[in-house]
Every structure is written in C-alpha cells, then in structure tokens.
Design a binder for these strands. Structure first.
Lengths: 262, 262
DNA sequence: GTCGTGGGCG
DNA sequence: CGCCCACGAC
C-alpha cells in the first residue's frame, strides 16, 4: 500500500481554511501535519476537515501563537505531546498510525532576530530546543517520520544566498551545527535532499515582506521531512508544492509531500 | 432638469468601497453624501469614485472615527466645514451646487449609552450639538438640503417599538424635542415622512448585534434628508434603499435617495 | 457585530 | 507583510 504524508506551516488554520481545503482537494494526501495553527483546540475547524474525509484529527493548540495539528484519512492515535522548552508552548504532537509508523510533527522556535545567546534569549531557547530534540531523537528505536517547520535552512543551497544569510537567524553556522547533531542522533534521512540533492534549488518559505517574492525568489528551506533510515527506504517520492505560495492569501510557507510504499 | 441626491452612513468607506461601487452602479445618484468615512483625507479612495464618473469630491475626514464626504457627478464647490462641538471632530461638510443649491452633510454624535447629561457627557454633547445646529439653522436664508445620520428617530413609527426605546438613546423624549426645535428653526421639511407619512414603516438602520436582523426587524430611522420649504416643493421622490442592508459585508445603515425636479 | 488602531510576533 | 489580540466606539 501507498501512504502520502504532507506537512505545512499554515500561519493560522482558521484564516487560511480555504486554501487548506484547496490543497487537500488537489493533492489528497492521506495525512496532513500543520504548524502555526494559532488556535485553541476548541476552535479548530474540525468540521471542514471531516467534510473532506479527514475524520481523524489530533490537535495541540494554544491561544495566539504556535499550535500544531495532524488531520488524517487513515486511522491514527495520539501518542505524545512533548515540550522541549518546558514552557507550555504547543510546538509538538506525535501520533501512531495503524501500521506502527510514528509521525512526529514539530514547530521549532524561530529564534528572534539577533543570532546571539546573550543578546537574544530567544536564540538560546531555539538552540536548547534543538539540543533537547537531539537527546529525544537519540533514544528512538522505532520507524519514525519527523516533519515540520524546523526554522533552519542547513545547506548553502537551501537559501537564496549563503553569503547574505550567514549571519541571519535560520542559516547561521551555530544553528546549522545544532541541526546536524540532531540529524546524526538518529541517522535521520533528509527526504528533501534525498530526492532533490544539492545543488538543486529547494525552498519552502518566502517572506511576506518581499512584495515581489516570486521575481526576487529569496526563499529558504525551513520545512523538512526526516525519516528513520529503514523508513526512508520506503519513500518513493517527495515534492515541495511551491505554487501554493501564490494562491490567494497564502501562507509564507508551502506544503511538502512524501509518498511511501509500505 | 432632475437631480438625485443620496446619503449613506457607510461605516468605513475603505472597507466598504465594493458595496459603494455596487450602489452607485445600480442607483447612479448624481450626488452621494457619506458619513462615518473613518479615513483621513489623503487615504480617501478617490480613484474608485473618479473611475465611476464621480469626479467632484469634497472630503472632511480624520483618523479613526467620524469623517464625512460628498462625491458628485455634477460640479460643486466646498462651502464650509462646521464644528458644532468645537472639538475638531469631522462631522460636517457643506457644498454649493452650480444651481445655487446648498447641500449640508452632517454626522450627529451618537450620544453614548446612558440618556443622562450628568452620568454620560456624550449625551450632553449630542444635545449641545443639536442646539448649535438649531442656532445655525435659524439663520439660513437660502435653499438648503440637510442630510446625514442625525442619530435620532423622532416619531413613534420611526422605531420598531416606541415603548421599548423610550429610554434608549436615539429615541428619548429629550432628543426628540431637541430635534423638533432644530426642525422648527428653518421649517425643515422631513422628506422621508413627506413621501412616506406615518404610520408607514420607515427604517434606515438595523444593529449589527442582531444576527437575525431581517427576521426580527428591529430597525430605527436615524438617517434623514431635510429640505428648505421652497426646495421641498421640487422634491419628486424619496426612497430608502433597504436591500443594501443584506449585501455582503453591509453597513448597519442603508442609503436614502431624493429626486428633485429643478 | 463590526469597524480602526496599536503592539507582539515572525 | 500579515497574523492574533486588546481596546474603544457605535
């Protein structure tokens, strides 16, 4: 059987429910992981998803910021909600699928503007978050798919200009090294680059602030899907749905989809 | 020649420019007076009006609240901006048409919630505003059309329930008496009731807070067009465009139109 | 209920 | 740029 899993930082699932429906209608993934839902669990637009066949819904939201959710056409059960900052922010939810696959959906902190632990506490929190994810990751002993907005673009080819972004949060060496440690801790396979090796252009985010985002194309690859080595062997396709960036009232992130043959 | 003049409390002309265009396309009044434009003069959507042939535009706006404007297909010149509160609020603008007709566009203060001068200063300011309009009105000696949101429903038949609203600001006896003095000061002809005498139902405003506004029909006649006696003799029709209340993203007020044969 | 504004955040 | 919220006004 085949299974398709998508991930999308939606930047308010309520405000953008229309393009989420459009995406599900066009791509029909079996499972969709959302980040930055920005909604408390009671206000999650459950009905819209159920009407489209996504009847299995696991939410972990909060007021105002952050929030993650997983909606699915195939059965799944909630497994855990981890708090890698121990501050109560809703940045992770994990589920188990019927075939035993674990799916972990995470929204890594953005990290503020200044790439300095002392001057900018948020930057330190981001690095600490990645370190605690690394420790968690090293203990995993079952096939897992880790997806979400990691807020780090690791490779030079993951940003529009390696040189221009070396001191910009999301692409600084210290973040890239922290992400490398996380990846090594479970031998995670970066499915994006597995299917589209560097130096291929591969971006998942374009700032709202650039009005001519398509023309200037100053993108970054902040969103990722990482698989346990055994699971990666079953991945048959991976793509970034870049056209979604130009839909009406878009998110600044676009969806990723991986197809598995299990 | 005939001349049609409309008046509409639009509750943000920028937010509702779409239905303003729809109204102009359908009714094509020669002149449209707007209240609660909620826009500073520099941000008034001039281009949209000019594109529809309303090339003569006189605005008197401010940040955030209030604001009035007159847009016209026929030539007119700004005549005055009166401040009947002496507090700088943009609640009036007057123009002269080529035929000598004066058109005065006013947005009377709502007056707050409690109908008591002592407990609620805004109520006193509303009564003072009407008193100063009365003094101004008694000195008029040229044919004038006074239009706008008067925020008073004078007759028992001007509200959905005379009894229920006797103590509700907009229909209290003290406001009704103040409006009667204003009317008497120039022998103003109330064109709404001139063409649709009581007890005919005649409402121009329905609260946003009643979701089933059409079914419950708890309206009030807060908007008016008053003519000097000599001018009123030339009025040939007057109507309230009630369907506008059910358009997409409506104002809580609907437009009024009077046609003159001059 | 539905505006505008201003601040937080990304 | 563009979301969420709090506030004040009507």
């Amino acid at each position: 059987m085949t299974l398709s899993i998508a991930s999308w930082n939606i930047n308010s699932v309520r405000f953008r429910i229309g393009i989420v429906e459009q995406f599900l209608a066009e791509e029909a993934p079996d499972v969709l992981c959302l980040q930055e839902t920005k909604v408390i669990d009671g206000d999650f637009p459950t009905a819209a998803f159920k009407a489209m066949g996504y009847t299995h819904i696991v939410v972990h939201g909060q007021r105002m910021h952050h929030g993650v959710a997983i909606v699915s056409r195939v059965p799944l059960v909630e497994d855990n909600r981890l708090d890698w900052q121990a501050n109560g922010e809703a940045r992770h939810v994990g589920v188990r699928l019927e075939n035993g696959l674990r799916l972990e959906n995470v929204y890594v902190p953005a990290g503020g503007d200044i790439p300095d632990r002392e001057l900018n506490p948020k930057f330190g929190q981001k690095l600490d978050f990645l370190q605690r994810m690394t420790e968690w990751s090293s203990g995993l002993d079952y096939p897992t798919l880790l997806v979400g907005d990691f807020n780090v673009a690791p490779l030079p080819e993951d940003v529009w200009s390696h040189k221009a972004l070396l001191d910009v949060v999301s692409h600084t060496p210290v973040e890239v090294e922290a992400l490398a440690r996380l990846q090594a801790a479970h031998d995670w396979v970066d499915l994006g680059r597995h299917f589209h090796p560097a130096p291929a252009r591969l971006h998942t985010w374009w700032s709202y602030r650039a009005k001519e985002w398509a023309a200037s194309d100053r993108g970054r690859r902040l969103d990722h899907m990482w698989a346990s080595p055994a699971l990666a062997a079953n991945a048959v396709a991976h793509r970034v749905c870049e056209p979604c960036r130009s839909w009406l009232k878009p998110s600044d992130h676009v969806p990723l989809i991986t197809e598995f043959d299990l």
